[in-house]
């Protein structure tokens, strides 16, 4: 005698229930109950009455689906569209694999005495600060000195490729959002979801869709996770551009395109750069998690630390990640500050 028999008898559905006895195999809970020898038909006190959940209702009526049927259905649904999705997504995302592989190959095959000075030149170009160049030089040398150079460069190249793609895709989406309120209303829930979904959850459907040996698997996971700030801040930045200046642009007869390139994007640049900074920091966070699905780099060492209880390796790799984070943050913030000072109001 289960708790909710009366519901089905009141609705006159007993026939439907008994006609279709659930064919699902016995659940763990049922098995346990059986071995304990408790009688499932014993009277249940009011205190112990379960919530009318799917499983509780199933106990009263065999035809009612159990909750594991729900997860199972979702899984089957996903698997059935998976092939079709792969056909579409595979070719579209293929360039991502190429980008990542090329970047990794390039960073690792070129000798250190080319890569490190090259990175320093880039830092000098975007920040125009010798202090920062010296700082970055010391940090990179330190990583190389403790023989973590290769891992650090792998992580760095993944981040650079993914952050670059985030900007490439995110800025136009942000612009589109700033132009249409409808687009904004539709995108914000998606962005909220991408930002709040625990990063591990991205990996689950991606593992089904792509083969784990392909680098685009982690590339997509990183991009999905890190693209949100750059989209949000591009949208916000363009919407925050001084209304008076926009009006002046209109009054002098600028076309939409002129307005975008000459007024909106330049004036939104501080916000866009703040978004890029956050995007880079989030890629770094994700690249560690993505080691679970074969992303190379410092994350692999952290993972090894956890798996094999190699405390020292894990901690030093973690420190390396912190150093990379500080470098990336300082460099992007410095270039942001440079843009800000160039267009003070």
């Amino acid at each position: 005698m289960a708790s909710y028999d009366f519901v089905f008898s009141a609705l006159g559905l007993e026939k439907w229930c008994s006609a279709e006895q659930s064919s699902a195999p016995m659940s763990m809970a049922d098995l346990l109950a059986k071995t304990k020898g408790t009688d499932p038909d014993a009277e249940i006190s009011l205190w112990n009455t379960p919530f009318p959940s799917m499983d509780a209702l199933n106990a009263s009526c065999g035809a009612f689906p159990q909750s594991r049927d729900l997860t199972k259905g979702l899984e089957q649904g996903f698997l059935s569209i998976k092939d079709a999705l792969s056909v579409v997504l595979d070719p579209i995302t293929q360039p991502l694999s190429w980008f990542l592989d090329t970047a990794l190959y390039g960073m690792l095959t070129a000798p250190w005495w080319i890569i490190i000075p090259l990175l320093l030149v880039v830092v000098q170009l975007v920040t125009k600060s010798f202090k920062l160049v010296a700082f970055v030089g010391v940090c990179l040398s330190l990583l190389a000195f403790i023989d973590y150079y290769e891992y650090a460069m792998q992580t760095l190249s993944i981040i650079l490729v993914c952050a670059f793609l985030c900007v490439l895709i995110g800025v136009p989406i942000g612009i589109a959002m700033s132009r249409s309120n409808m687009m904004q209303r539709l995108s914000i829930p998606v962005l909220d979801m991408l930002q709040t979904l625990p990063p591990f959850v991205y990996l689950i459907p991606l593992i089904f869709l792509f083969s784990v040996t392909e680098s685009k698997l982690y590339g997509i996971a990183i991009i999905l996770y890190a693209i949100v700030p750059v989209i949000r801040l591009t949208n916000l930045g363009i919407r925050l551009v001084d209304k008076d200046v926009i009006e002046a642009a209109d009054a002098f007869g600028m076309t939409d395109r002129q307005k975008l390139y000459r007024v909106q994007i330049p004036l939104a640049l501080p916000n866009i750069m703040a978004g890029v900074n956050q995007t880079i920091m989030m890629s770094l966070a994700m690249v560690v998690i993505a080691s679970l699905v074969s992303a190379p780099g410092l994350g692999v060492l952290v993972l090894r630390g956890i798996r094999n209880l190699e405390l020292g390796v894990g901690l030093v790799a973690g420190l390396g990640i912190v150093i990379l984070a500080v470098i990336l943050d300082r460099v992007t913030k410095a270039s942001l500050a440079r843009i800000n000072s160039a267009q003070k109001h």
């Binding site: 001084d242 008076d244 200046v245 009006e247 002046a248 000459r262 007024v263 330049p266 004036l267 160039a342 267009q343 003070k344 109001h345």
Partner: peptide, 8 residues
């Protein structure tokens, strides 16, 4: 009124 010059 508020000049509305391009700051950059």
């Amino acid at each position: 009124q508020k000049f509305a010059l391009l700051p950059h």
